[in-house]
Design a protein around this nucleic acid. Structure first.
Length: 267
DNA sequence: ATGGCGGATCTTATCCGA
């Protein structure tokens, strides 16, 4: 008995619905967490996912931007959303699944990108990102935050040197600045979160989950960043057996997402 | 040149992402 959880920033779920369905058919994760669905709740293609065998959904949509969803072939219990920074953004949804090792809450996050300038004084988007991380840390510190959890999503931070194509050249680029990586590392230490991607693919190996659309040839230049993550509390991470990053997905179809799916197996 | 692209919507222009 095992359970598999996938995360994928899909950059419009309506545009790339056939691609997601093909992914589900080929890889059959039990749970798929999507970010940047870019639609409202009533526009979410729930029926299409149900016909693909994924009949359980927890959706936190928003018009045009952001938006997150969990689709599952296992029942989703007690789904919930949380608002951060009083922005009205749809950047979080969670639900409980019955895993072989017990009931487990899965959180799906879309952390703000942060704009261009890594300076909270002059860049409101960067301030939003840092404030979001601060609120997240406060939440993790609360006593009622369960100990058995998985968190996934587009964190928009590449924390380690081998999570970017050039550590040196990206030190001042939002997503890899020391302020962001230190903050994310502190956040990770808060609940002893285990990075289950790096548990199976060690830091010595370069690993990316995002490649810019603006690159002429993403595959040849390979200037990516590891922005997408799957973390688990220690007990659950102890059950994790494998993680796959589907690099090839960056080249799927004529219009791929700029992020690729990551799948972790537990149990 | 990673960011000379690609989403959605305010659509033939604009805002946003990273």
């Amino acid at each position: 008995m095992s359970i598999s959880v996938a995360t994928w920033n899909i950059n419009s779920v309506r545009l790339r619905l056939p691609m997601v369905q093909e992914f589900l058919a080929n890889h059959q994760p039990d749970v798929l967490c999507l970010q940047e669905i870019k639609c409202q709740n009533d526009q979410f293609p729930a029926k299409a996912f149900a016909e693909s065998g994924y009949q359980y959904h927890a959706v936190n949509g928003q018009k045009s931007y952001h938006g997150v969803a969990i689709v599952s072939r296992l029942p989703l219990l007690e789904s919930d959303t949380r608002e951060f920074c009083k922005m009205g953004d749809a950047r979080h949804v969670s639900a409980i699944v019955e895993a072989p090792f017990g009931k487990t809450r899965i959180h799906n996050f879309y952390i703000p990108a942060g704009g261009d300038e890594a300076n909270i004084e002059i860049n409101p988007k960067f301030k939003h990102k840092m404030d979001f991380l601060s609120e997240l840390q406060d939440w993790f510190d609360e006593d009622d935050f369960d100990n058995e959890q998985i968190i996934v999503g587009d964190f928009n931070i590449a924390p380690h040197e081998n999570d970017v194509w050039s550590h040196k050249q990206l030190l001042k680029v939002v997503s890899h600045t020391p302020l962001e990586t230190d903050t994310l590392n502190a956040l990770q230490a808060r609940r002893n979160w285990v990075d289950v991607v790096r548990k199976h693919i060690p830091h010595e190996e370069r690993l990316y989950s995002w490649w810019s659309y603006r690159s002429k040839d993403w595959n040849a230049s390979n200037k990516g960043r590891r922005l997408d993550h799957i973390w688990a509390t220690p007990d659950i991470a102890g059950h994790s057996s494998q993680t796959v990053v589907l690099r090839d997905a960056r080249g799927w179809g004529l219009k791929p997402s700029d992020h690729v799916p990551i799948i972790s197996h537990f149990g």
